[in-house]
């Protein structure tokens, strides 16, 4: 704090790229657009002159609009349609996060295993697809899952090859072409695929940092691998788990591309609606209001996670005291 000049670049950066946009979003959120008011004055010759509030007159009909502070967008936001969308977004994000955790933790654990050769290479292979364009990745999934896609053609071939299986499946009402795409599960699959590495990385990093001698000490004192996992690895990896949850949950709540592509527009999420406001519907004000809503939800979530983290530390503290 001694040299304030050194912090200036950051302060400037934060002002331009964080504070100003945020203020703009809040401003848009709490205002609506309305046409500027004017009065028509019919001239003796029958022509019309428009007088604005500030007294200026024009012969052209005023087209400008102005922003007026109004909470009507907040009222609209609380309509069941939007709340349902938000709830679905939350549900999809929670499911995605849980699946990512269920897949990611074991992967991270295996990668940090002592007997695992070349963990860096495997980690790299896991992350490599993430270097490809996000859209490309999602389109690839679509071409695998679509009705005439790779998966369906394989299944078809398998059913042709084994007629008994085909009959058995038909008898159970399984159609020849299974519809994988354009439903909630497809959206979740797309999210899990895209966000999984964000779960693996932080967990891998914390587990990797655990002092091996602690695990040896646990084993020395009689802890089987399962017990030493419960008593040493798990408590030490918790910060990584919390970070992974945040890294997956937050983008999952706000995503729109995945739901549009994998869901084919049939599974709109809150992100889609927001994007819509800035695109087709061109209602930036309502878009901003919905953004604020999502922001509050995310902040509440982060706050809850942060409390878990702190409580965890506090309970440690308490136990120690």
């Amino acid at each position: 704090m001694k040299n304030k000049a050194l912090t200036l670049p950051f302060v400037l950066w934060a002002m331009i790229f964080i504070v100003v946009p945020l203020v703009m979003i809040v401003w848009y959120g709490v205002t609506i657009e309305e046409p500027i008011p004017y009065t028509e004055i019919i001239q003796p010759d029958g022509s019309v002159i428009y007088e604005l509030e500030n007294g200026s007159r024009t012969t052209e009909k005023p087209w400008q609009k102005r922003a007026v502070v109004s909470l009507s967008n907040f009222k609209r936001m609380l309509e069941p349609t939007y709340l349902r969308l938000l709830l679905r977004s939350l549900k999809v994000a929670v499911i995605t996060t849980v699946i990512c955790l269920a897949l990611g933790y074991p992967v991270a654990l295996i990668l940090t295993g002592r007997d695992f050769k070349r963990p860096a290479l495997w980690l790299m292979l896991l992350i490599l697809p993430m270097w490809m364009n996000f859209l490309l990745r999602t389109y690839s999934w679509m071409s695998i899952l679509e009705n005439s896609g790779i998966l369906n053609s394989w299944i078809a071939r398998l059913r042709e090859a084994i007629p008994v299986l085909d009959e058995w499946l038909l008898a159970r009402g399984v159609r020849r072409r299974i519809i994988f795409l354009y439903n909630e599960n497809a959206v979740i699959l797309g999210m899990v695929y895209n966000y999984l590495s964000f779960m693996i990385m932080p967990i891998y990093t914390v587990i990797e940092k655990i002092d091996r001698s602690l695990l040896e000490a646990a084993a020395d004192l009689g802890a089987s691998p399962a017990k030493s996992f419960m008593r040493v690895t798990l408590p030490y990896s918790l910060p990584g788990v919390l970070e992974g949850i945040t890294m997956v949950f937050v983008p999952a709540v706000t995503t729109f591309v995945i739901s549009q592509l994998m869901g084919g527009g049939k599974v709109p999420l809150i992100g889609d609606i927001i994007q819509n406001q800035f695109g087709k519907s061109s209602d930036w004000h309502f878009g901003a209001t919905l953004s604020l809503l999502v922001m509050v939800v995310v902040l509440a979530f982060m706050g809850a996670l942060g409390r878990i983290d702190k409580e965890d530390e506090q309970s440690k503290e308490v136990r120690i005291l």
Partner: peptide, 15 residues
């Protein structure tokens, strides 16, 4: 963990 032998580690390895 199945050996009735215990160790004091070089850097103690306390939890």
């Amino acid at each position: 963990y199945k050996r009735a032998i215990n160790t004091v580690f070089q850097r103690y390895a306390l939890f």
